[in-house]
Write a protein that binds this DNA or RNA. Sequence first.
DNA 1: AGCAAAACGGATACTGTCAATCCGCTTTTG
DNA 2: CAAAAGCGGATTGACAGTATCCGTTTTGCT
Lengths: 223, 223
Amino acid sequence: MPHASSESPRPLRRDAARNRQRILEAADELFRRRGLSASLNDIAHYAGVGVGTVYRHFPDKDQLVEGLFEQRFEELVRRMEEAVADPDAWHGLTSFIRFSTELQASDHAIKDLLTGGHVGLERISRIRARLMPMGEELVRRAHADGQLRQDIEAADLPVIQAMMGPLIDASAELDPDLHRRYLDIMIRGIAARPEQEPPLSTPPLALDRVDEIMVNVSSARRR
Amino acid sequence: MPHASSESPRPLRRDAARNRQRILEAADELFRRRGLSASLNDIAHYAGVGVGTVYRHFPDKDQLVEGLFEQRFEELVRRMEEAVADPDAWHGLTSFIRFSTELQASDHAIKDLLTGGHVGLERISRIRARLMPMGEELVRRAHADGQLRQDIEAADLPVIQAMMGPLIDASAELDPDLHRRYLDIMIRGIAARPEQEPPLSTPPLALDRVDEIMVNVSSARRR
DNA sequence: AGCAAAACGGATACTGTCAATCCGCTTTTG
DNA sequence: CAAAAGCGGATTGACAGTATCCGTTTTGCT
């Protein structure tokens, strides 16, 4: 066993390389469609490969997941940056919220990662840490422009996202666009209005405790 | 075994009667607090009784559940009738929505029954059938008074309820009142506003398909 | 071609969670 | 006090997923 940890110790055998690729593609597809609850058996079968092969390439499920999602989150961060740069603060805020929900709807694995009990994964909390200050900035600017109700805070954004997850799941097969309707309603609900309105019943969660909610909103359940 | 199905075939032994009562109380308490996913083992233990005793009194879990919930739903129906009778249509509508959410929050078993995969239970669909026309009436009157946005329909009410379920679960231990904040936001979102606003992205589900969503919003797995 | 190492496949073991049963022991009651 | 009624909880069974093991196949090298 020469230099176990050095760079590219030896090229993968042809069949191994092919299978590894197939597994990654199958995992990508099934995770997107069915969320993280897609089992490794399903993935192996979908890839036309035995379970053993999956485990040979990826010691465990988390390892497979981690590798697969780096760039998907990059997209989220990029869109968030775009939203922060939007000259119209309200448009920036709402299009970020909408994008984030669409992302969850089109990729159920992302939804599970954003909300489920996987928050512990190093990668996810790093993403959250980058997103949070941008959310605060979006909220600050929309407040300043008088378009966002003053009693809505940055901590409300992730909770609103979290609420969409279960609805996305529930309506996915029946009416895949339905979640938009209720997100629209929520967005109307946070928009400033000229008249005085009764205050909200209860304050938002402290920003640093929002994660604890997200963890609990898991909707991990499948056929 | 004389007259198995006739009235009071024979009095329960004293200890049996006491245990039966304890089981009912424990089930009531635990179902309320933890939802239908409370296991019969938990209930037995909480009642200070063996599992066997639970099964002797109640052939299976559904039987225990069914008996326990008749009157809880009666309360829901009664409140709904009150809301329909409210001279202020908007106040009637919102207080019904709020009550229904509070009921879910204070009794997680009701939440599970309203949304989970238990819709099949005869009793639940009967309740739904009674509630639906009342919801339509509330919406019709709030529309007529110009307080409810015209593009909100009766089919939206159960979906809004369904959305609250997962949030209630997620925040139950952390901040048991949090769900109110987001229900307030949704209520603001369905309130009529003087200005023209962009239409909602997508129409509501047909009223007779709403159940199919409710079934999927379960946070508790089915029997 | 021939052979050893690498990789494969999928049956199988293991894990965890619950519902539900069984039977030797305890309590009640007449 | 003895038989009937009831009890407790270990145990079984079902199920769904993760992970391992090992006999067989493929590959790469000479």
